[in-house]
């Protein structure tokens, strides 16, 4: 009997060894350890043994049963592991294949620049005013101290619709429109982005339509030094912390004194290069202290309040910032141009 058990064990272990699928393992389990299997049969037949032999034989049967059972378990674990490995191998992908493109458009570069400037001035407590693109002669010129026949009207030849209405030549008309609404009660802190129009033939540096951002701050004790401070923060945030600014005297009919602002060249740092035409400085915008006539016409008392105003061109800023060489790109909308402005 002992020999028989040993032989069964050998046989079972050998079969387990050779089994290559889960089903075979299950079959082996049924064959050897099942209710009708040989080992169960031997257990049943143990009643015929003597008292002394029975426990010994019982122990042996258990040992063999456990041995087979352990081997089976082990085999199952091995097979399961192999199955998982097989599956992982099958599921392996080429991670170098391109990912699925996410569909996403982006801002036009002018919007990008304008929003950046808007955010900067929002942070300084300005709000954003918008006004009509077709203006009256009064708001576009007269309320800005440009009476009819003023020689400076030459500087901005315009598209008239009637004698009294025209496409605005700057976003400055919102100065008067905003101030009028406030009935002389300040402070006024606005910037005015928008489209403007001038009689220019389109070429690499001219466009009959372009963008402008006007800024206006009116209140008690608004000083030119404040204009300098505000523009300095603007220049540093827009063009880099190392930027210096300088104000140069200039002339605009709606400001007195008037200035033009240059920034130190971001390309050469001020040593002189092709971007700054060798001067180390780049002209960015014009501004000044609001002319008392403008304040007066819009219902503010120039004895009580002062103000500053400035105007800048987003195209020029974008061209400088991104190195764009032709203003027409902004209006042609070549998708290869627009798509370049898709990252931060």
């Amino acid at each position: 009997m002992q020999e028989r058990l040993q032989a069964l064990k050998e046989e079972a272990l050998s079969e387990i060894q050779q089994a290559s699928s889960m089903k075979e393992v299950q079959d082996i389990k049924v064959k050897f350890l099942g209710k009708k299997g040989p080992i169960t049969e031997i257990s049943k037949g143990m009643g015929k043994l003597s008292k002394e032999e029975r426990p010994k034989m019982g122990q042996l049967v258990n040992e063999i049963r456990n041995a087979i059972s352990d081997q089976l378990e082990e085999k199952i674990a091995r097979l399961e592991k192999a199955a998982v490995e097989e599956r992982l191998k099958k599921e392996t992908i080429d991670v170098s294949l391109p990912g699925r493109p996410v569909k996403r458009g982006n801002h036009h570069p002018l919007t990008r620049v304008i929003e950046e400037i808007e955010d900067l001035f929002l942070g300084m407590g300005f709000s954003i005013a918008e006004g009509p693109e077709v203006e009256t002669d009064y708001y576009n010129f007269e309320a800005l101290n440009l009476p009819k026949d003023h020689p400076a009207r030459d500087m901005q030849d315009s598209f008239y619709i009637t004698e009294e209405t025209l496409l605005r030549t700057h976003t400055s008309p919102m100065q008067a429109r905003t101030m009028e609404k406030l009935n002389g009660e300040g402070p006024v802190k606005i910037i005015v982005p928008g489209k403007v129009y001038r009689r220019d033939t389109d070429d690499a540096t001219h466009s009959h339509q372009f963008m402008q951002i006007e800024g206006l701050m009116v209140g008690e004790n608004v000083r030119m030094s404040d204009l300098k401070g505000v523009l300095q923060s603007f220049a540093k945030k827009m063009f880099g912390e190392e930027r210096e600014i300088r104000l140069r005297p200039s002339f605009f009919p709606f400001t007195e004194p008037s200035v033009e602002m240059d920034i130190s060249c971001f390309n050469c740092g001020g040593d002189g290069c092709s971007v700054c035409k060798g001067t180390g400085w780049i002209e960015i915008l014009g501004g000044g202290m609001v002319h008392p006539n403008v304040l007066r016409m819009s219902g503010f008392d120039p004895e009580k309040v002062t103000g500053f105003a400035f105007g800048m061109g987003p195209e020029r800023i974008a061209m400088l910032k991104y190195g764009i060489d032709d203003i027409r790109h902004f209006y042609t909308n070549d998708s290869r141009f627009i798509k370049q402005f898709n990252s931060l």
Binding site: H107, T111, Q209, F330, I338
Partner: peptide, 9 residues
């Protein structure tokens, strides 16, 4: 969608 800016005239 990509944004464009075109002429008013």
């Amino acid at each position: 969608l990509y944004q464009t800016v075109t002429y008013s005239l």
